[in-house]
Design a protein around this nucleic acid. Structure first.
Lengths: 266, 266
DNA sequence: TATTTTTAGTCCATCTAATGAACTTTATGA
DNA sequence: TCATAAAGTTCATTAGATGGACTAAAAATA
């Protein structure tokens, strides 16, 4: 080694530039993965492994084109420009042929109806249904339907993964088809919020006769490797069959099915 | 000019590097603007003003992250990665759950189908539809569809708020699905321009059997507090029900609905 | 089928714009 | 008030983006 020379370090390995598009995408997806409340700059830097100043400038550039928005709380969120692009983008080919057997197994195990659904705009879009062996079924939704979050446990499971702003909005505009006076003076808002909390603590939520008299259900969000959860799996049955005990009994199977599906989706 | 010297050109003004994120976004939006069939490389280069090789590499990078897909026909389309991001992105300010009741009230009043749509790139994107009580309906568009400006009165209402350059462009490329010879020797260009003028003078435009035989419609742009109008509300019905008299009768309700919606959007 | 025309994709010298360490500013909270 | 942490800014360095020129591969035409 040259004993002479100045203290000049051998090489500057600090820089690590790479494909800017890939870096910007990494930042976008880090934001998408973050809590719906928004993401902090430091966390995005940590998540992507990109230096803070670089992340900061990427976020600025992305803000300029409307793909990122920054709140007064300084947190970064996805921007509505992405929504507009997303409207024109094709839906990913969910591999339903691979997902269906998992749902079918759960339907066989539970003997009731299993739904798989995805979050779409401001509601739940049902992708598939598999019937269990039990002959009495409540046919509340069809495959292809899109329903408000508050109209099903699937919806609540998905809503629980969103920010408080979205939750407040969904609860404020809640509307499920219940007979006048059915719920009496129940604190529906509080009830629904407790269901949302259940998802956080138990990984699923469930109940009976809230959405519709005589109908019970339980649902869990399906984790995603790349995004905030956007898919849910649920079991729907007549009230008598989904007692709290039975729900606790089925919960491990529901969560296991969700986990299996998570391996098949982006 | 320097008589001496070699043929070396004075300066190389060819390069025009700029914010990569902005360029990638420009390419994405050029693809989004293109026909759903896909976009050709040359056209994207022309649309964005970026050199073909650069567009090509940007497309490659965007493909790598799933924001662009290329078919075997070599055409470039938006990728499903954008759909996934769009899922987590906020809708651009407008709150459909608040707008829907207003549309529903107009549908109830008119007994026919009411659409709410937004301007998107070079067309009209339908956000919601509420059916009226009248049983005979023309189902021309679905929610989620994006149609050219010239294919509906909603489109004309939105187009009227744009510059003459955009209007000329839209009218030049007009294409609606009418039977061969349906319009005879009508001056379609003049007719459409008169509809655009109607919006300026009356606040709405309407007519029958231009877009499609037997179908009539009327539409008004929804004012925006912060930008040029980007949303429209329209009534669609079979021709017999939307006579000029009835349109004049319904116009105040249409404009009132537009005004109410304008209070709910940015 | 051969020939032309058009478009997609590749290569590479140039040099801009992206990068991150170091620094300043702003917010949070004790 | 001061301390701490995060946001945001600056700037020398240089890696990677850029587009002209070229080649390859389709379409289009004869």
């Amino acid at each position: 080694m040259g004993a002479s020379a100045i203290t000049r370090t051998e090489v500057d390995v600090t820089h690590n530039p790479a494909n800017v598009v890939a870096r910007a995408a990494a930042v976008l997806e880090a934001v998408a993965r973050s809590s719906a409340e928004g993401a902090r700059l430091v966390d995005l830097a940590a998540a992507t492994g990109i230096a803070r100043p670089s992340v900061h400038r990427l976020l600025q550039d992305l803000t300029e084109v409307g793909y990122i928005e920054q709140g007064t709380d300084r947190l970064y969120r996805l921007g509505s420009g992405l929504f507009m692009l997303g409207l024109n983008a094709p839906t990913p080919g969910w591999d339903l042929t691979a997902i269906r057997p998992i749902a079918a197994a759960l339907a066989e195990r539970s003997e009731d109806t299993v739904y798989v659904s995805v979050r779409q705009f401001d509601g739940v879009h049902y992708l598939l249904r598999t019937e269990g062996a039990y002959p009495i079924r409540a046919q509340l939704v069809d495959v292809g339907d899109t329903k408000p979050y508050t109209s099903s446990y699937s919806g609540l499971a998905l809503l629980s993964t969103l920010g408080t702003a979205e939750q407040d909005k969904a609860l404020a505009s809640r509307s499920f088809d219940v007979p006048e006076g059915w719920l009496g003076d129940t604190d529906v808002d509080g009830l629904l919020r407790s269901k949302l909390a259940d998802v956080a603590t138990l990984g699923y939520c469930g109940g009976a006769s809230v959405v519709m008299p005589g109908v019970a259900g339980m649902a869990a969000p399906v984790p995603s490797r790349t995004q905030r959860p956007y898919m849910a799996i649920s079991i729907s049955a007549v009230e008598a069959r989904l007692t709290p005990e039975r729900m606790a009994d089925l919960a491990p199977d529901l969560l296991e099915a969700a986990k299996q599906i998570s391996l098949l989706i982006p």
